[in-house]
Amino acid sequence: GLEHMADEEKLPPGWEKRMERSSGRVYYFNHITNASQWERPSG
């Protein structure tokens, strides 16, 4: 619901949600550090 939507907005600075086109899996990418990970970043 709306709570989940708001929660997605609160990623740490630099992080954004991305989708891997080949598999459709969602991952997280940090455009500041060029880091990427499957787990939702905390902090």
Rank of each mutant, 00 (worst) to 15 (best):
W38T: 05
L11I: 05
G24K: 06
R21W: 14
H31T: 15
V26Y: 14
L11Q: 03
Y27L: 03
R40G: 02
E16S: 07
S42W: 09
I32P: 03
V26A: 07
P41F: 01
W15A: 00
Y28D: 00
G24V: 02
V26N: 04
P41V: 01
R18M: 08
G14K: 01
R18D: 01
S22Q: 13
H4G: 12
H31N: 13
M19V: 15
N34T: 06
S22R: 13
M19S: 07
F29I: 04
N34P: 02
E16N: 03
E8L: 07
G1N: 12
L2F: 14
E3L: 07
M5H: 11
P13L: 09
Q37W: 02
M5F: 12
T33M: 05
E39V: 06
W15F: 02
F29K: 03
P13V: 08
P12L: 04
T33F: 05
Q37A: 04
I32Y: 11
S23N: 06
S36H: 09
A6E: 12
N34E: 06
K17R: 13
A6I: 11
R40H: 09
G43N: 11
Y27S: 01
I32E: 08
R21T: 15
Y27K: 02
Y28Q: 00
G14A: 05
W38H: 05
N30P: 00
K17Y: 05
E39M: 06
N30Y: 04
H4V: 13
G24Q: 07
W15D: 00
H4P: 12
R18Q: 05
Q37Y: 03
L11W: 02
R18L: 08
S36V: 15
E39N: 07
K10Q: 14
Q37I: 05
E9Y: 09
Y28W: 06
H4F: 12
F29V: 05
M5L: 12
G43V: 12
G14M: 04
H4S: 11
T33I: 05
P41C: 03
A6Q: 12
R25W: 03
I32D: 08
S42E: 10
P12R: 02
S36T: 14
T33R: 04
Y28G: 00
R25N: 04
E16M: 06
G14C: 09
D7T: 10
R25P: 01
H31A: 11
D7S: 10
A6D: 14
E39H: 10
P41E: 01
K17F: 05
S23R: 03
Q37E: 02
F29Q: 02
H31K: 13
R40T: 06
H4A: 13
S23P: 01
E20F: 08
L2G: 13
E39A: 07
F29P: 00
N34L: 13
E39R: 06
L11Y: 03
R40Q: 05
L2I: 13
Y28I: 00
G14L: 02
K17P: 05
I32Q: 08
E20W: 08
R18G: 02
W15N: 00
S36N: 05
N30G: 00
Y27N: 00
P41N: 01
E16P: 00
S42P: 08
G24R: 06
W15H: 00
M5N: 12
E3V: 13
L11E: 15
G14W: 06
T33S: 06
P13Q: 09
S36Y: 12
N30Q: 02
R40S: 07
L11N: 02
K10R: 12
M19N: 06
G43I: 13
M5D: 14
R21D: 14
S42V: 12
P41K: 01
E8R: 08
Y28F: 06
G1M: 11
E39G: 06
E8M: 07
S42H: 10
A6F: 12
Y27Q: 02
K10T: 13
R21K: 14
G43L: 14
D7W: 07
Y28L: 00
S23V: 03
W15V: 00
K17G: 02
G43C: 15
G1H: 13
K10N: 12
M19H: 11
E20T: 09
D7N: 10
K17Q: 09
K17H: 04
S36I: 15
E16V: 10
E9S: 08
N34V: 03
E9G: 08
Q37T: 06
G14E: 05
K10P: 15
P13I: 08
H4D: 13
S36R: 15
G24W: 03
Y28E: 00
P41M: 01
S42A: 09
P13W: 13
E9M: 08
F29E: 01
E9C: 15
K10Y: 11
D7A: 09
E3D: 10
R40N: 06
R21Y: 15
G43K: 09
F29W: 07
H31Q: 09
L2E: 12
R18K: 07
Y28H: 00
S42F: 09
G24N: 07
R25V: 05
E8G: 10
M19G: 02
M5S: 12
P12W: 02
E8A: 10
E3H: 11
D7L: 09
K10L: 11
M5E: 13
M19A: 06
N30F: 03
M19P: 02
G43Y: 13
M19R: 13
S22A: 12
A6C: 15
R21H: 15
Y27P: 00
G24C: 14
R18I: 06
R18P: 00
T33G: 02
E3Q: 13
W38E: 05
I32H: 09
L2K: 10
P41W: 01
E20Q: 13
P13F: 14
G43P: 11
T33W: 05
E3W: 03
F29A: 01
W15G: 00
A6S: 11
N34C: 15
W38I: 05
A35K: 14
N30A: 01
P12E: 03
D7R: 07
S22W: 09
T33E: 04
A35H: 13
R18W: 04
P13M: 09
N34D: 05
Y27H: 02
W15I: 00
